[in-house]
């Protein structure tokens, strides 16, 4: 079979399948719809988390005003705000990087390579940052609840404390593993495609990934530290003290 015959067959098939032409009005509806793409889901997750972090920050600022004069609670809210601000900044930078990696307008090799590099190096950090939001959201929300319900931070007994902490940790772990599982499948798919594109591609990208991983190690350590400090804040708020509004 020669090239011409192959192209003739293709053209014939194309003529036969021109049935479903869309009008511009339908296309306008399509571009206003929702995406089912995995990369879009990740982007939505980052944006949603950014919004949640911003809300937690605002609520912590409100808590600061509500508990003004109660030094310990004020210190906790200030510590929360100080930790959240760089997290929001970092998350925003991650969103920009992810948007660049996810842009479908670049050539296929670059798109696959950038996406794979992001998912293999930055996604873990993104998940850590997303998980941290639960803690800050919980602290900020609880402070508002205690203020409206009791007028002060009610000290929790041992059982309350274990239950709250367990729920938070389950939430963090669940969010972490569900997202990680979804992304693992995507990573495998990207690796196969890159390999099919050119045998040496995956090798080159892997070297780049290793380099990036080394650079990002400090970011991961910092984030892990923020999570630990967040848990400590939680302990300070609910375990040791009973602040009374003066």
């Amino acid at each position: 079979m020669n090239d011409k015959k192959l192209k003739d067959m293709w053209n014939k098939a194309e003529t036969l399948m021109e049935a479903s032409d869309y009008k511009s009005s339908s296309i306008e509806q399509f571009i206003s719809g929702r995406s089912n793409d995995t990369t879009q889901k990740i982007k939505t997750m980052i944006i949603f988390d950014l919004v949640l972090k911003a809300i937690s920050l605002c609520v912590l600022a409100i808590d600061f005003v509500l508990y003004f004069g109660t030094t310990n609670v004020m210190s906790v809210t200030i510590a929360g705000i100080v930790l959240l601000l760089p997290l929001i900044f970092m998350q925003y930078k991650m969103l920009n990087r992810f948007s660049e990696a996810a842009d479908n307008g670049q050539n296929t090799r670059d798109k696959l390579a950038y996406m794979l590099t992001y998912l293999k190096t930055k996604f873990f950090t993104t998940l850590l940052s997303v998980s941290g939001t639960y803690l800050f959201g919980f602290i900020a929300g609880s402070l508002v609840y205690f203020y409206t319900a009791y007028g002060y931070v009610r000290p929790l007994d041992g059982v309350d404390f274990v239950v709250f902490l367990t729920f938070i940790l389950i939430g963090i772990a669940f969010n972490f593993f569900v997202n990680q599982g979804q992304v693992k499948y995507h990573i495998k798919h990207l690796e196969i495609c890159l390999n099919d594109l050119n045998d040496k591609n995956l090798e080159l990208v892997s070297e780049n990934i290793e380099l990036q991983r080394k650079r990002d190690r400090s970011n991961k350590i910092l984030l892990a530290l923020v999570l630990v400090i967040g848990i400590l804040l939680l302990v300070i708020v609910f375990k040791n003290i009973g602040f009374i509004i003066k």
């Binding site: 793409d37 995995t38 990369t39 479908n104 296929t108 696959l112």
Partner: peptide, 14 residues
Amino acid sequence: WMYRVALNTAISNV
């Protein structure tokens, strides 16, 4: 450009 975006979307569509 359209081919680029269309193919990238189809290839990444897992």
